[in-house]
């Protein structure tokens, strides 16, 4: 079961919106598909990201995947722990494995994202 209070993309990112700040990561499904994550390439603070455009790359031993932003905004914080411990993406994808926080530029974009139930349906079909 994925957390009910988050919203999701078809590309397996999750987002938690808290006021005008959104925290973004990838789901446990994505982490399992990738296998052991070895590196996460994230934008620096101050960069802007666009909804559904790539904002970074996650690498495992045998695979690589682009990361797509669920929402547009400006990056205000990057999870520095992932530099030394990328395995957090596997072990705690919805917690310590978060990737970036952005200041949301258009809160209405959230409406275009999947809720937990819709995302569950998506991954059960995969």
């Amino acid at each position: 079961m994925v957390p009910a209070d988050l919203r999701y993309t078809k590309d397996h990112e999750w987002v938690r919106v808290d006021g005008d700040t959104a925290t973004i990561g990838v789901t446990d499904f994505a982490a399992n598909q990738l296998g052991d994550v070895v590196f996460v390439d994230l934008p620096s603070v101050g960069k802007s990201v666009d909804q559904f455009a790539t904002f970074g790359v996650v690498e495992s031993v045998k695979a690589v995947s682009d990361l797509y932003a669920p929402l547009s905004g400006e990056v205000v914080e990057v999870n520095g722990d992932l530099g030394g411990a990328p395995e957090l993406v596997n072990s705690d994808p919805f917690g310590g494995g978060w990737m970036i926080r952005v200041r949301v530029s258009d809160a209405a974009q959230v409406d275009g994202l999947l809720d937990a139930a819709a995302y569950e349906r998506l991954t059960s079909e995969a």
């Binding site: 070895v38 590196f39 690498e59 031993v61 045998k62 695979a63 690589v64």
Partner: peptide
Amino acid sequence: TLQAREQHIRREK
């Protein structure tokens, strides 16, 4: 190691 840089994984990128 670091094979994600290479063509058999990253293909056109």
